[in-house]
Design a protein around this nucleic acid. Structure first.
Length: 226
DNA sequence: GCGACAG
DNA sequence: ATCTTGTCGC
């Protein structure tokens, strides 16, 4: 499949939903050798008060040392509003600009959003993964749909997220007495791999390092602009 | 009809 | 996400 098919960015909600339903057929779910991954990236976007200016940032880290290899930030204007379920149409365009500036492309990307744990099973992590044709993992701070289930077949540090019969992802407990992060498949990874890579990126905080650093990066950029 | 709702 | 101070806990 040609990644560029994911590129037209709709102007209307109806059009955007139709595109999601079409693009979700192109998402591939497959295992990733997480222990072999050397380069991981985290993405984040920060908005100005007006809501139209956005700072998008990407930080690439080398595993297992977790040293920053490269980071890029861009400031642009966004046109699509925030609509629950359509986050990708607001945040992906700025992130793509930051991605283009990147010289070192990572092997896997952590997105501050959901992947499969989405009403139409096509959250931003899925969309962005298609756009850049790179494995992506959704790692969100709250649920958009579904609920954490109690399952004895789950691991010590995670519990499955279900919506009816659909396994959407996993609540990963990255810190003692802290809310979990919600991990789901983006593109070209499966759930065990997604959990594996996120675990490798956790360093004493609830939020995995790539996402923490990306958040700091865009926050700094926005402060510096004012 | 009502509430919920990634960032 | 953004607007915001102090405060509780590891």
């Amino acid at each position: 499949m040609n990644p560029r098919e994911a590129f037209p960015f709709p102007k209307t909600v109806t059009e955007a939903v139709e595109l999601q339903l079409r693009l979700r057929e192109q998402v591939r779910e497959e295992p990733l050798d997480t222990e072999a991954v050397r380069l991981v990236a985290g993405t984040d976007v920060s908005f100005g008060r007006s809501g139209s200016e956005a700072w998008a940032g990407i930080v690439v880290l080398r595993l297992p040392e977790m040293q920053v290899v490269e980071e890029t930030v861009v400031c642009t204007t966004v046109s699509f509003p925030y609509v629950p379920g359509l986050l990708s149409f607001r945040e992906s365009p700025p992130l793509l600009e930051a991605w283009q500036q990147l010289n070192t492309k990572p092997e896997v990307v952590l997105c501050d959003a959901h992947g499969r744990a989405h009403p139409r099973r096509f959250g931003m992590a899925c969309h962005f993964g298609l756009l850049v044709d790179t494995p992506t993992v959704g790692c969100a701070k709250s649920l958009l749909c579904g609920a954490v289930a109690r399952s004895s077949s789950a691991g010590e540090d995670w519990q499955p997220i279900y919506e009816g019969e659909d396994l959407l992802g996993a609540a990963l407990y990255t810190q003692p007495s802290a809310q979990p992060v919600y991990v789901s498949v983006g593109h070209r990874v499966d759930l065990p791999s997604a959990l594996g890579i996120v675990r490798r990126c956790v360093r004493g905080h609830r939020i995995p390092e790539p996402l923490r650093l990306a958040h700091e990066l865009v926050t700094r950029a926005r402060r510096g602009a004012a």
